[in-house]
Computed example of a mutant assay.
Amino acid sequence: MLAAVQAFHDKHRFRETGGEELTYRVALMAEELGEISACVSKGKPKAELAEEVADLLILVMGTAIAAEFDLNAAFWEKMEKLMQRRSRMVNGRIRVSEFKD
């Protein structure tokens, strides 16, 4: 998947044309979260939700490319930390966080 996103960036020359500017990418991710929210809150078909989540995933991978960090390594480092955390019910829903008692 990461190679496909890299090819997309290369095809459209994102690095040379502002497509890898991080503030811009954050705005695009916020826009996609809004579209995901609309899918959920309006009960749109799962296919539409899947497409919007895929858009966000592509943007996340592209942000790793733009910021020049190893997303795979970052993922596994974070998962290791998350697996060590406690969970707690907060307002009737499970939450896994660094709780400060």
Rank of each mutant, 00 (worst) to 15 (best):
L2E: 08
Q6Y: 05
F8P: 07
D10H: 10
K11T: 06
H12S: 01
R13A: 09
R15P: 06
E16P: 06
T17N: 14
T17K: 14
G18L: 08
E20R: 02
E20F: 02
E21M: 03
L22P: 01
Y24R: 13
V26W: 04
V26H: 05
A27G: 13
A27V: 10
L28Q: 06
L28H: 07
M29T: 02
A30I: 06
E31D: 03
E31L: 01
E32R: 01
E32L: 01
E32P: 01
G34Q: 15
I36D: 14
S37M: 06
S37T: 09
A38K: 10
C39E: 01
V40E: 01
S41V: 10
K42Q: 15
K42P: 03
K42N: 14
K44I: 02
P45Y: 07
P45V: 07
K46D: 07
A47Q: 12
E51V: 03
E51F: 02
E51K: 00
E51W: 02
E52K: 00
D55C: 09
L57I: 12
L57E: 05
L59V: 00
L59G: 04
V60D: 15
G62N: 05
T63C: 11
T63Q: 04
A64E: 07
A66S: 02
A67H: 08
D70T: 15
D70G: 06
N72D: 15
A74E: 05
A74V: 10
F75I: 03
F75L: 03
F75C: 03
F75S: 04
E77W: 14
E77A: 15
E77S: 11
K78H: 10
M79Q: 11
M79W: 13
E80C: 07
E80F: 08
L82T: 09
L82Y: 13
L82I: 11
M83V: 10
R85V: 02
R85Y: 00
R86I: 00
R86K: 09
R86S: 06
R88Q: 12
M89V: 15
M89E: 15
V90W: 11
N91L: 11
N91I: 09
G92K: 09
R93S: 15
I94H: 04
V96T: 12
S97I: 09
F99Y: 09
K100Q: 05
